[in-house]
Design a protein around this nucleic acid. Structure first.
Length: 421
RNA sequence: GUGGUCGUAGCUCAAUGGUAGAGCACCGCGCUGUGGUCGCGGUUGCACGGGUUCGAUUCCCGUCGAUCACCCCA
């Protein structure tokens, strides 16, 4: 270990070698959103705990087990955000965005989220999501739009091996009826204590338990599809047909539930099979009741969040290489103190003219400085010593061909801008 | 939170109850005004803490971290 400190458990540093990929992923997800009229929003990384317990749901694992709560000097209870939707909706209500413009209010965000979980590949305590929310409109085209935008974002990155799972969770009319029926069915099964508890709090969650001994018993369980009311059924059919019309392939997954309480009707998940157990790269759905749950007016809404970390893993799994870190165009190699001063001024001038330039620091010898120039990946080396400076020249060496030509110092910026264009 | 596997150099990996080596990388020299190739030389490490032992990198325990699965989800 080269340092006595290390990144906290479940966190990692995004280093220059991989940073371009991370930035490219964020940008690839953001671009389709901007083109679709979504405005950027940033909210605090911490909020009142109650926003999450009421919004995300007291019975969810996210709130009951995975919340990063903060200790402070006052008596307010704060927690690091475990997801973005509740905060974005809170900000919307606080700023009355739903009153000053046309509905829906379309917003997107990009930022870190925090969950106190046992880390494993693709699951971290601090992770990044880019999310989108369309607040205040009930329209199947809006649900479909978001799924299409996420699909297009992934495709623009070159990803092909992901699947879209789609389901409807019903609304406040039909879901309670189903919930009761399911609970009755689950009560007759042989389940462990944790699962029995879950069956009481959030019975739908039991459906996507991966354990074979649980799945075996679920054969013949009442399915939500059979309980959907006419409105929900019609709504879901429209979402499906708009997606099909847009050429977006999806799979109906009647067991797709998701872990947040606020979802109603449309839910969906983007899964990638190359990631191991943590296969969801993104997910979302409609949350028609959330606004009221946190004290706002009725604002039917829909949104998603895509995991930046997992998308990077998906790219790796598919062997997709995004452009690496950009190298400087020019690397200056000074010979002696006088040249060091002149070349430093030249490098500054080049940078101001829009040419990316670096210089050998630390009084390296010529050989070492040339080596540094080579390793920097720069296209050109700029070599100068007293001999050249006496004639107001610098040596411009093309590092790919090895050709070297003298260039007048005051013509350098123009010459380089020409060569690099 | 539960269970399994793992932790030796910057990286990939060896060996060993008597305090460690290779390849690549890095630095220097050959070439004192020129990188990439080549030759020669050199630098860097037993995750942390405790126990057993004459002696522990090796055996045992704990901690930390990684990893896989469960759980959960992005």
């Amino acid at each position: 270990m080269s340092s006595s400190f290390q990144a906290p458990k479940g966190t990692y540093d995004i280093l220059p070698a991989t940073a371009p990929t991370v930035l490219a992923v964020r940008e690839a997800i953001a671009a389709p959103l901007r083109r679709a009229g979504y405005g950027y929003i940033e909210t605090p990384v911490f909020e009142d705990v109650k926003l999450f317990s009421r919004g995300v749901g007291e019975s969810t694992d996210i709130v009951s087990k995975e919340m990063f709560t903060l200790t402070k000097r006052s008596d307010e209870d704060l927690a690091l955000r475990p997801e973005g939707t509740a905060s974005v909706l809170r900000a919307t209500l606080e700023a009355n965005l739903h009153r000053i413009g046309n509905l829906p209010v379309k917003l997107w965000y990009s930022g870190s989220q925090y969950r106190y979980e046992r880390p494993q590949k693709g699951r971290y305590r601090q992770f990044w999501q880019v999310g989108a929310e369309a607040i205040g409109a009930e329209d199947p085209a809006l649900d479909a739009e978001l799924i299409i935008l996420a699909n297009d974002a992934y495709r623009s990155l070159g990803l092909r091996e992901f699947r879209i799972l789609l389901n409807s969770l019903g609304d406040k009319q039909c879901r309670p009826v189903y919930r009761a029926a399911l609970q009755e069915f689950l009560a007759g099964l042989d389940l462990d204590a944790d699962t029995v508890r879950r069956a009481e709090l959030n019975p739908l969650r039991v459906l996507d338990d991966k354990r074979p001994e649980v799945q075996k018993q679920l054969v013949g369980a009442p399915m939500l599809v059979d309980y959907l009311c006419e409105d929900c059924k019609a709504y879901h059919e429209q979402v499906r047909s708009i997606l099909t019309d847009a050429g977006v392939a999806f799979e109906d997954d009647p067991k797709l539930v998701r872990g947040l309480d606020y979802y109603t009707r449309t839910t969906f998940e983007f899964v990638h099979d190359g990631l191991g157990a943590q296969s969801a790269v993104g997910g979302g759905g409609r949350y028609d009741g959330l606004s009221e749950m946190i004290g706002g007016p009725a604002l039917p809404s829909v949104g998603w969040a895509l995991g930046v970390d997992r998308t990077v893993l998906a790219l790796e799994a598919e062997g997709i290489e995004l452009p690496g870190p950009a190298a400087s165009d020019v690397f200056a190699v000074p010979l002696g103190e006088q040249a060091r001063g002149v070349l430093f001024r030249t490098v500054t001038e080049l940078r101001r003219a829009g040419v990316s330039a670096d210089i050998a620091y630390g009084g390296k010898g010529l050989k070492a400085a040339m080596k540094a120039a080579d390793r920097s990946g720069a296209r050109y080396a700029l070599v100068a010593g007293e001999r050249d400076l006496a004639e107001n020249l610098v040596q411009l060496k093309d590092l790919t061909t090895g050709d070297q030509t003298p260039v007048a110092l005051d013509a350098l910026v123009t010459t380089l801008k020409e060569k690099l264009s």
